[in-house]
Computed example of a mutant assay.
Amino acid sequence: MPDPIAPQILIVDDARDIREPLGQYLRKQGFRTRLAAHAAEAREILAEATIHMVVLDIMMPGEDGLSLCRWLVAHDGPPVLLLTAMADETDRIVGLELGADDYLVKPFNPRELLARVRAVLRRAPPEIAAAPSGRRRFADWVHDPDTLKLHRADGHVVDLTSAENRILGIFLDQPRTVLSRSTLLDLTSGREAKAYDRAIDNQISRLRRKIEADPKQPALLVTEWGGGYRLVAEVAQI
C-alpha cells in the first residue's frame, strides 16, 4: 500500500485499458493515484484532493487534454505530463507551449513513464505548507494558529514560535499518521539544499516541552523509531 503522504498522481484518459493498468503500476511503485475518464471528472478530483502531478491524455471526448492543460497552468495547478498519439506532433508542441512539463507518445513503456513522472516531480518546486488556519482542539489543548498560541483547558496559555506553529499545524492536519523527518522538512521549509534532519528533532523537542505533561516521556507527540513522529490525539475543528 502506498505511503499516505506519497505524491498523488491523477491519470486522465478516456481509455480504461490505459488508465487502470497505469494506475495499478504507479501504485506498485509507491505513488498514490486517482483516475478520471474525462476532463469534467478530473476537475472534480482536483477540487477535492491534493494532486501533485497530472498524467493527461490529449485526445478525449468533450473537453480535450489541451484545454484542461491550459486551465491547470492558468490556475497554478500541478505539473502536467501529456500523453499523445504518434502523429500528433502539433498537439505536442501546443501542449508544451501552453505550459505542460513533459509529454510521452503512445504506445509507451510504463517504465519510461515512471522515469518521466519522477523527473517532473524532482523539477517541481517544493510544496511549502501553508500557514495553518482555524482553531482546533486536541487532548487538553486548543491550537489558535492565527495568534500563535495554545490554550489549555485549565486556562494556561502557551506562546508558539512561527516554526512551532507551522509544524504543529502539520501534525494536526494528519493526526495518528507517522511523518518522517524528511517529510516534515519538505512540508515546513521546502528542504533547502543544506537542511538536515536534526533541525526537525530540535523543533519537536521544543514543542514537547510546551504540550507534554512529561516531555521526557511524551504521550502526545511520540517517536516512531526508524519512522519519524506521530501525533496521538483526536483532532476537532472548533
Rank of each mutant, 00 (worst) to 15 (best):
D64L: 09
A119E: 13
A47L: 10
A115F: 07
L72D: 03
V158E: 14
I128A: 00
V222W: 08
F108S: 07
G95E: 08
M1G: 15
R122T: 05
I204N: 08
D173A: 14
G155V: 07
I167D: 03
V235W: 02
R70D: 12
L172P: 07
R208H: 06
V120M: 03
I200R: 00
I204H: 10
S162G: 03
A233S: 14
G23Y: 06
L187E: 01
P4E: 12
V94D: 13
I238W: 00
A74M: 06
P218E: 11
T90I: 12
P125A: 12
R152K: 15
I9N: 01
K210M: 04
L72H: 04
E127L: 11
T84V: 12
S180L: 05
M60T: 08
Y196P: 01
L148G: 00
A115W: 04
R152C: 12
E97T: 12
A139T: 07
A40K: 07
A236F: 09
T183N: 06
L81P: 02
A37T: 11
L81T: 08
L104A: 09
R136A: 05
L220M: 10
P145S: 08
V178Q: 01
L114Y: 06
R176T: 01
P7T: 04
V158W: 09
T84D: 06
A39F: 01
L179S: 00
G228N: 06
R152Q: 15
R34F: 14
I167M: 09
Y229S: 04
Q29F: 10
R111A: 14
F31A: 02
P78E: 07
R32V: 06
P7E: 03
L179K: 00
A49P: 00
L35P: 14
S189T: 15
R206A: 11
E97M: 13
K194C: 03
R27V: 14
A236C: 01
P132I: 03
S67R: 00
L22F: 04
R92I: 05
V120N: 09
H143K: 08
L113R: 01
S182K: 10
A15D: 14
L148Y: 05
V222L: 13
V222E: 15
E97I: 03
L172A: 13
E63S: 02
R230S: 00
L98P: 05
L83H: 03
A153V: 13
D146F: 01
P7C: 05
W71G: 01
Q217P: 01
T188W: 02
W71K: 03
G169L: 00
